[in-house]
Amino acid sequence: MALIKTKKDNSPITLSVTIKYGHYGTTTINLNGNPIKTIGGNFKDFVLGTNNSLKHNTISVVTSVLVTNAELNTEVEFDVVGGENSDKDTSNIKADNNVNYVPHYNGYTFI
């Protein structure tokens, strides 16, 4: 779980997800283990909440990539901005030959 230090205000903290190699994927965002949003494809600056509202909470993100072309490498970039610190992280997993989907995970603890 990446640590994000929150600001003492109501400014937004956002998440961007970029799926590389031209594949398609769907992202599920969970707040304290409960799904709050599902987004198909790449997206930028989805508001997870305000700094004050996210303090002492955890966000986990699962992006399942559907392997839609001959490239078996799958890579997802998770980018959280808006807190005292930001977090940009890349998950890279090569798909097995006989499986056409790969789940990628990242998590954030807001302190």
């Binding site: 769907t26 599920t28 969970n30 799904p35 599902t38 699962v62 399942s64 559907l66 989907y101 789940p103």
Partner: peptide
């Protein structure tokens, strides 16, 4: 279907 996969994986 991918949303179902996401929930199972989580």
């Amino acid at each position: 279907i991918l949303n179902q996969i996401n929930i199972s994986y989580q």
